[in-house]
């Protein structure tokens, strides 16, 4: 693949957070804390603002998995947002416009995979596909790449 092709692809496809190998997840939750440190106007200690969730599969004996926005082309959460705070993002997923949000929680209910989380203030925390958490995934479960 030459450089020209890569460049033109980048224009058509934005980068997204993806799962490389979910079976490698150890459930450490470092991605959650990374998200909260990054995904806020001021870095945050805790998980209130985290748009990603690490869970055990009904007990750690069955392993762990992570839940985050899959960057839908037609996000249900956008359709149910009464104020336009959830906006479609170019290339899939959403942009969240905080000052429009009235914390109704519709988006959280509408998300089929339960990937929108409730912050301490009741507003949604959702992955914006910035890729920050990837650098803190110690076992290569997550990656940040252009998705066809």
């Amino acid at each position: 693949m030459n450089t020209m092709n890569v460049e033109s692809q980048k224009k058509r496809h934005v980068k997204k957070l993806v799962i490389k190998d979910i079976e490698k997840c150890v459930g450490c939750s470092l991605c959650m804390y990374a998200c909260a440190r990054k995904n806020a106007k001021r870095p945050e200690i805790g998980i209130s603002g985290s748009g990603i969730l690490a869970v055990s599969l009904s007990g750690f004996e069955r392993g762990a998995t992570i839940i985050f926005c899959h960057a839908c082309e037609e996000p249900p959460c956008v359709e149910v947002c009464p104020t336009g705070a959830m906006k479609r993002r170019e290339g899939g997923g959403v942009r969240f416009v905080e000052n429009l949000c009235i914390a109704c929680g519709n988006c959280m209910k509408a998300c089929t995979i339960g990937a929108i989380f409730k912050r301490e203030d009741g507003k949604p925390a959702v992955c914006i596909h910035c890729g920050y958490c990837v650098d803190y995934c110690p076992h290569d479960v997550l990656a940040y790449e252009v998705v066809e």
Partner: peptide, 16 residues
């Protein structure tokens, strides 16, 4: 068969 981690620890020292 698997290794898992305590919360907020990259090590995953729990050997299963």
């Amino acid at each position: 068969g698997r290794r898992i981690a305590c919360n907020h620890c990259p090590t995953a020292c729990i050997h299963i």
